[in-house]
Amino acid sequence: MIYTSLCSDGAMRPMLATAADPDRGLPADGERWAYEVKWDGWRVLADIHDGAVRLWSRSEREITAAFPELAVIGQAHSDVLIDGEVVILADGVPSFTALADRIHVSDPRRASALAARNPATLIAFDALRMYGVDLMARSWQERRAALERLPASGEHWQLSPIYEDVDVLLEATLEQGLEGVVAKRRSSVYRPGARSSDWRKLAHRRVQSVVIGGWRPEVNDRNQIGALLIGVWSAPGVLRFAGRMGSGLTAAGPQASLRRLLKPLERDKPPFSEEVPRADARGTTWVEPVVVVDARHLGRTEGGRLRQPVFRGIRSDLEPEDVRYE
C-alpha cells in the first residue's frame, strides 16, 4: 500500500525497538548493524506533501498545531513520509522537561509563543515514502540512503547520525548525558506498529511509562497531589501495581495538568489486579487507568515495583494499552 497521505488512509503507528538485555548489551557488528543516538524526545511520523507538513504521534493523534516552527520543513520537499523524533535542545542535549510544555498545546498563539522561546527540531532517522514510492518493504540501508539524498530542510531539521562502533557511541552518549543507543539491523524492513528485535535499544537512564491508578494528597494540603499510585499492564485486562511515586510532583504545571486529567476519572475501587498494600492505599483517590506518565527509576523489585520512581512528565502520545514493562 502506498501512503500518499497519512490522513487519507488513516494514521499509522511507527515501528518500535525492543529493549536490549543490559547484561548482553547491543550486537557489536557494524557490518550488519547501524547505531544511532536514542533521542529523548517525542516520536512522530512527519507526512510532508504539497508544501505542508502534518505531524502524527505514536498514538495516531495529529499534533501539527503544537509545533508551528516545523512547518518550514514542508517547503523543502514535495512528498516524503519521515519517521523521527521531535526534540528541544538545551546546550546540545534534548530536554524532555522543555518538550513537556509543548505536548498539550493546541492554541496557535500559545504554540507560536512557546516555539519562539524554545524552538523544536525534527531529528529524522527513516524515510517510509518518497515521491509517491512506498519504501517500507525495502531494507533499512536502502531507506537510509534515500533519506540522505533529501535536500536540506532548514534549521529545524537534523538527520540522526549513524555510527559503526557501538562501544564508542555508548561511551560518548553516557559522557554527554544522552539517553542511550539504538541498534538497527541494516537488512531490516519497516514494520508499522510492530516492536521488532531488528531494532534494539539500550538506555543509560531507565525510564518506564506507567498508568495512574490513583493519587494521594499532600499531608498539609489536600488540594495538592503528593503521590501517584502507578501500574503497568502485564496482559490485557491485568494491571500490575508498580508502586507509589511522589518525587518530581512539586512543579505547578504538572500539578494543574494532573488534577485536571484525574478529576473526571475518579472511581470507587482500585483498578489494579492485585491487592494494593495498605500502606500505599491509605487515603488514595482511585481513578480509571487511562492517564499515562513517564517515571525515571532505579530498577524493579521482584514484585514488579519501580525503585525510587520520579515523575518525569505526562505522555499524551501513548495509549494506556501501550504501557508494558520495558
Rank of each mutant, 00 (worst) to 15 (best):
L262Q: 12
A251I: 00
A20Q: 03
Y190I: 02
R244T: 12
L55I: 04
Q75Y: 02
K263F: 03
L261H: 07
P94L: 06
L262E: 10
G213E: 06
V291G: 13
N220Q: 14
Y163M: 05
R102C: 06
M15K: 03
F241E: 07
L6S: 01
G299A: 05
P320S: 07
M130Y: 07
H104P: 06
R307S: 13
R110M: 13
A34C: 11
V291R: 07
D47V: 00
D50F: 00
D165S: 09
P192L: 01
L169H: 08
V87S: 09
T301F: 03
A281C: 03
T284M: 12
E60V: 06
G231P: 14
L258Q: 13
V37H: 07
N118E: 15
R244G: 06
Y190G: 11
W39N: 07
E274P: 11
D40S: 08
M136A: 04
G237H: 01
R267F: 02
R240G: 08
L81A: 03
F96S: 10
L159M: 10
R138A: 08
W33L: 06
A194N: 06
W42L: 13
F125S: 08
S234G: 09
D47Q: 01
V293K: 09
S257K: 14
R54Y: 00
V80F: 05
I314T: 07
Q158K: 11
S247L: 12
E155V: 14
A235P: 08
E171Q: 15
L147T: 03
L170P: 09
V87F: 07
R216I: 08
R307G: 10
F125I: 02
K38L: 12
A19G: 08
L178Y: 13
G177N: 04
A90Y: 01
L174C: 10
R240D: 15
I48M: 11
P27M: 08
G243Q: 05
H156K: 09
G193H: 01
V207Q: 10
G253L: 13
A183T: 03
A256R: 15
G132N: 09
S153F: 03
M136R: 15
S5G: 00
I73G: 13
K38E: 15
I2Q: 11
A172C: 03
I162R: 12
S139G: 11
E164C: 05
S234L: 08
A242M: 02
R61F: 01
L262Y: 09
D101V: 02
T301W: 03
R195L: 07
A113I: 02
Y325L: 14
R144V: 01
L114W: 06
T4C: 00
W233R: 03
S95H: 05
L147K: 07
W56A: 00
S187R: 11
G10M: 00
S139H: 08
H297C: 12
R205N: 08
L114D: 11
V310Y: 13
A145L: 10
V219N: 14
Q224T: 12
S257C: 05
Y3S: 00
Q224D: 11
P108Y: 01
